[in-house]
Design a protein around this nucleic acid. Sequence first.
DNA 1: TTTCATGGTTTCCTGTAGGTAACCGGTTTC
DNA 2: GAAACCGGTTACCTACAGGAAACCATGAAA
Lengths: 121, 121
Amino acid sequence: MKIEKEDLDQTACTVHHLAIRDTMELLSGKWKLRIVGSLSFGKKRFMGLKANIDGIAAKMLSKELQELELNGLITRTVLNTKPTTVEYELTAYGHSLKPVIDVIADWGTQHRKKIIDEMKL
Amino acid sequence: MKIEKEDLDQTACTVHHLAIRDTMELLSGKWKLRIVGSLSFGKKRFMGLKANIDGIAAKMLSKELQELELNGLITRTVLNTKPTTVEYELTAYGHSLKPVIDVIADWGTQHRKKIIDEMKL
DNA sequence: TTTCATGGTTTCCTGTAGGTAACCGGTTTC
DNA sequence: GAAACCGGTTACCTACAGGAAACCATGAAA
């Protein structure tokens, strides 16, 4: 049985697809990438995140944080303060997403420039 | 008025957020990234894409392709064949997404490895 | 003349993502 | 004892993303 170039492409392509799907599933939802992006600037508390991420409701923030923690991307630390404060921080694994976030943010930045330039014409 | 480090962080962070949101809006939906990923291997026809992207329905493919074309990421070329065939191809701008796709696919690949390794324990 | 292929569109239906708003428990401050 | 702050949870609601299946026009082939 001969292996055609098409087959190789097909295989490479399938793996590619699986990988993309995996990443996007982990980062699914409107807010996860934003939360990770926010935390990539340093650890933050619940209210800090809520203030930092414009428009997010407490319910969503709490839910998304739980999923991120389940997936080992962030840690949740309850501090012994009064009133109780909770710190969220990227794990090492969470930090491994930095290249992903950065390249997405970079593309978005230059895309926004392009759109603005086009408006000026 | 003094500019604090926090303010700078805040500004950097806001821009970051906008950029992330912009990119993700363009690539929103379950299939767009997969379509672009598929086309990054070379131009394809409608049926080729449908076969290549496991599970996508014609309706979704057609809809997503329209949006991608509107955003200038792909071109649609109707060929003078019988039966009519249509070629979809990434534009130069679409190709500029390659680093984004690649880094997402790379992360997904190593994430999948990690999960499999953890299962072996 | 019936069937097959291409590249779709249309209709119908459903799950769920995500929004709003009220509420909660513990603690400190007024 | 009322109000405020933190970090949530709960209940309720709905718009829309997305799936399934049927349908359509064109033309070639059988």
